[in-house]
């Protein structure tokens, strides 16, 4: 499903102090596979996620998702790719604080060609799957960390994406909420989604589903282990 070939990412490329965040990364991810990117902060996990999600462009190399070269996509197509294929769950949730749970969840569907009743129906299904439907009308400011996380999950699922990308998803959660999150991931895996998680939380060491752990260090893949 995802073919990453010789990816390099250099920040401040034209300055006197360029920073090489990713060095010659090659990785193949199959459909419905669960990938755990592990490594310390600054090892390049989040940068790799950003490139797969087309939130940023690699300095060299290519990323092909379902036969489509996404590393060179112009903005309009990259946005369409993100909207259609990617469900991104961020460490800091990145929700629109002034809006309610439901309003945050419909946001990814606004640029689509769907009408309002269809959008609301999809949002309702997504909220139920993430277990946040009972908080639909509450604003983000009124939610706990775990509820915010579930809202972010519901928003990531609302477009029914093939690929779920999570960047340090449990960093701001307590153990109970982290376990709940893993339960949701398990359901998503069962639904056929491809999952990529960047984390250094040991809770991901014992997952209830098959996964491949990729260890990163200083911008390189140093170890791959099936579990």
């Amino acid at each position: 499903m995802i073919e990453i070939e010789n990816i390099n990412k250099i920040f401040n490329e034209n300055s006197s102090e360029p920073f090489e965040a990713l060095k010659d990364i090659t990785l193949h991810i199959a459909k419905n596979e669960a990938i755990i990117l592990s490594g310390v902060s600054g090892s390049g996990k989040s940068t790799l996620l950003s490139l797969i999600a087309s939130l940023d462009k690699p300095s060299s190399g290519k990323i092909v998702v379902d036969g489509e070269l996404i590393s060179k996509l112009p903005d309009l197509h990259a946005s369409a790719y993100r909207a259609k294929s990617i469900g991104f769950i961020f460490q800091h949730f990145n929700l629109l604080e002034a809006l309610s749970v439901e309003e945050n969840i419909i946001a990814p569907l606004i640029p689509s060609r769907l009408d309002m009743p269809t959008i609301k129906k999809q949002a309702q299904e997504s909220m139920q799957r993430a277990g946040i439907a009972h908080k639909a009308s509450q604003t983000i400011r009124e939610l706990s960390g775990g509820e915010k996380q579930r809202c972010a999950i519901a928003r990531a699922l609302v477009t029914n994406p093939k690929l779920i990308i999570c960047d340090e998803p449990t960093a701001n959660l307590d153990k109970a909420n982290s376990l709940k999150f893993i339960e949701i991931l398990s359901t998503l895996k069962a639904l056929g989604k491809t999952i990529i998680v960047a984390t250094h939380d040991p809770i991901f060491d014992t997952l209830p589903f098959e996964s491949r752990v990729i260890k990163m260090e200083d911008g390189r893949i140093v170890n791959i282990k099936d579990r």
Partner: peptide, 16 residues
């Protein structure tokens, strides 16, 4: 700035 970044990340284009 954050609001625009979030919308872009969830699939909104520059045009949107």
């Amino acid at each position: 700035k954050k609001e625009i970044g979030i919308l872009r990340a969830i699939g909104w284009s520059i045009q949107d």
